[in-house]
């Protein structure tokens, strides 16, 4: 093993995470390498300093309200789903009734009626096309079950 190979072991040695064989091997290397001994000493000093840094414990009150903060998000999501589904349903229904009324109205110009029907047909084709594409790619996505 060369010096760079011992650099990683140096961390394990510093944190007492090496097995006996690794520890012995590292100590043998230390005895013959001044660079690594000096570096280890520097890391020991750094560890002493970082060990003094502790994070502030928050007040107990935040733990009492912690779960409700998460549960509120769950409730809001359900609320949003219901709201969105209802809004989409009403929009589709309202749009359908409006178009139906326009088409049945004999006073509305035939060009407007044809235009409206073309827009609806176009939207339907686009929707089916996008949906088919998404399903096609989703089925072929080799990474869909990979943990992200």
């Amino acid at each position: 093993m060369t010096c760079p190979d011992y650099k990683d072991l140096m961390m394990g040695y510093l944190d007492d995470e090496l097995d006996d064989a690794q520890k012995q091997s590292f100590e043998d290397h230390l005895a013959s390498c001044q660079d690594c001994s000096g570096e280890l000493e520097g890391f020991r000093e750094l560890k002493q300093i970082t060990d003094q840094v502790a994070l502030v414990e928050p007040e107990d009150k935040i733990w009492q309200d912690y779960w409700s903060g998460i549960y509120n998000r769950v409730e809001r999501r359900i609320g949003w789903i219901l709201f969105s589904a209802a809004a989409i349903l009403l929009l589709i229904y309202g749009g359908f009734r409006l178009i139906e009324a326009l088409i049945k109205d004999p006073t509305v110009d035939i060009i407007l009626k044809a235009g409206l029907l073309a827009i609806i047909a176009g939207l339907a084709v686009l929707f089916v096309s996008v949906l088919r594409e998404r399903i096609h790619f989703w089925k072929r996505d080799r990474y869909k079950d990979v943990r992200r």
């Binding site: 650099k7 961390m11 394990g12 944190d15 520097g42 000093e45 750094l46 560890k47 300093i49």
Partner: peptide, 24 residues
């Protein structure tokens, strides 16, 4: 171990720099 080595090395360099090059 490798990431800890590089992390601590960077940390040490930054703290040394803050102390005007003096080793901590």
């Amino acid at each position: 171990m490798s990431r800890l080595y590089h992390a601590r090395k960077k940390l040490k360099v930054m703290l040394d720099d803050q102390k005007g090059g003096r080793h901590i």
